[in-house]
Simulated scan of single mutants.
Amino acid sequence: MNLWFTESQTKNLGLQARIKETLFMGKSDFQDVAVVDTHQFGRMLVLDGVFQTTIADEFIYHEMIAHVPLFTHPNPKKVLVIGGGDGGTIREVVRHDAVEKAEMVEIDGMVVEVCKKFLPEISQALINHDPKLELKIGDGIGHMKDAENKYDVIIVDCSDPIGPGKGLFTPEFYQNVYKALKEDGLFVQQTESPFYHQELITYLHKEIGQLFPITKTYLANIPTYPSGLHCFTMGSKKYDPTAANIGNIQPLKTRYYNKDIHKSSFVLPNFVQELLK
């Protein structure tokens, strides 16, 4: 069998993966949902034709979107994850001793159930009903409108700024995030590829920087994401992630994140620095 799945990473570039088997294909109220088993990356979640996560490299994204903010904040008791239906981010969040409650708001219940069935390594916190976790199937944007001075850390684990994820990249949404955070709270959002999505990154850094006194972008290398170079943007009311006291952080068994990666991920190439000026 010689079947290939192609993600159009830009209008001029695609990434192909040869498929062993299609495990699931369906359409939710929000998007096309598929899980395929690939030769190179193993099982892969695909939403609206876009690679979301794979068994082979998911740990990089999920560790970096979770541990960088949670080790920046000195006492992240209450955490909110918006999106993240595959369960990987919340899996990492509940591992932190300081976290007492972790809420997760995911708009697409089909994604959650499909990932629990076909990507159990990633969804283990959802499968095991971790006692710290409260899962809500609903609209993260609406959830933010109703929250005020509630969370220490908010993690926006969203898909691309199209379809159901589009509203998570707006000034109104960031204003609601700011309102929902406690006086020393911080948030992180995945903000695409600094190689292919430069206008978006410049725009987001400006919008977030108008609200948060500390706004930082950091990088990770994720093979299945466009260009392999991915970035995250943090908005913080008080704590600077580059000055975080990570010398005595809780030891966690990780595959990508460590103390040195925490620091070095904020060291940006010149072309990325130029985007943020």
Rank of each mutant, 00 (worst) to 15 (best):
Q198I: 13
Q198C: 09
L200S: 06
L200E: 15
I201F: 04
T202H: 14
T202M: 13
Y203M: 14
Y203T: 15
L204S: 06
L204P: 06
L204C: 14
K206G: 04
I208N: 09
G209E: 13
G209Q: 08
Q210F: 01
Q210P: 04
F212G: 08
P213R: 01
P213F: 10
I214N: 12
I214R: 06
T215M: 09
K216S: 09
K216R: 15
T217P: 12
T217H: 11
L219Q: 08
A220C: 00
N221R: 09
I222C: 00
P223G: 00
T224F: 13
P226V: 12
S227T: 10
S227L: 11
G228D: 04
L229M: 06
H230M: 09
H230E: 07
H230I: 15
F232W: 06
F232V: 02
T233L: 12
M234Y: 08
K237P: 12
K237H: 10
K237A: 07
K238V: 11
K238F: 11
K238L: 02
Y239R: 03
Y239E: 02
D240Y: 07
D240H: 13
D240P: 05
P241Q: 05
T242G: 07
T242L: 07
A244N: 06
A244G: 03
N245S: 15
I246H: 06
I246Q: 02
I246C: 06
G247H: 12
G247M: 08
N248I: 13
N248K: 13
I249P: 01
I249F: 14
I249H: 03
Q250Y: 06
Q250K: 08
L252I: 05
L252G: 01
L252M: 02
L252R: 01
K253P: 04
T254P: 09
T254Y: 01
T254Q: 05
R255I: 03
Y256A: 02
Y257L: 05
